[in-house]
Amino acid sequence: MAFEPTKQKYTGAIRQVTLGTGPKAVTVGGRSCFPFYTFEGSMPNAPRIAMEVWDKNPGDDWPAAAREPFADVLDDPAAWAKKCVEVYGAEMIALQTRSADPNADNRPAEEVAAVVKKVVDAVDVPVIVWGVANHEKDIEVMRLVAEQCSGKRLALAPVEEGDHKQIGASCMAYGHVVVASSPIDVNLAKQLNVLLGNLGVRDDNILIDPTTGALGYGLEYTYSVMERITQAALAQGDDKLANPIINNIGIEVWKTKEAGQSAEEAPELGDPKMRAIMMEAVTAVSFLLAGSDIVVLRHPETVKLVKGYIEKMMA
């Protein structure tokens, strides 16, 4: 008798979620097996990369290696986003509205939303708008963004239990996708999706953000929770967790001490640029293996590496 490898039986599948509109719209999810286990099921859509753009010049918040490729556009978020698409082939943009942070610049919501609108209009790829995780401010900003970019199928993040009603309602009213964000806990991830469902948000308008820890800074906690979400969705048929997952990686990796140390400060850690890029790439690949559908990345070199990895895994 010929050898028959054991195969996992799946009782569920990840639902598909589409971001953006027109020819460059992106659909993620649809997987009926564990990540890249195409010998057991189908994976109709490859995981995607969103390139990170800030709505303000990040200045010293970014290590030199991260600023260098964008030196000519750091003051102009729309030009920056365009460069990501036209020069680096970004399939999606993740715009971080850092200028809204009440503990820093605290730019008024109207101004923040106007910049978001400019970026959205400047590119033809889907845009994820990532707030500052301050409920009051995010509600204010996202309400304006949702309205002014009506029908663009943006993804609005992070939507937490404390602001899900307000931002969820804005998404429903203007046709955007909710990024449901919970603090590294599978039960809370499920609960938030239940609450969004009670509110009336359709299941295929939800992405899960499990909260992302960078390599060396909690990666393994995020990884475990993603595995549990994926197992619940696929092996237990848990409908409330059968959504694609997004990881906001760039911002977590590049703020670590090791990503910012110069060659003089940490000679034993090697070339600072390559070091940070590798940290970002390793974090991204780990999460792709745990079931990520969208990874948000900062450096063009990381994007190239991870894109190559995805192509090989999908071949």
């Binding site: 239940v194 237990q236 409330k240």
Partner: peptide, 12 residues
């Protein structure tokens, strides 16, 4: 463990 706990488990 047949289904995953969430605070709304009785409503599902």
């Amino acid at each position: 463990g047949y289904t995953l706990y969430s605070d709304s488990w009785l409503e599902l």
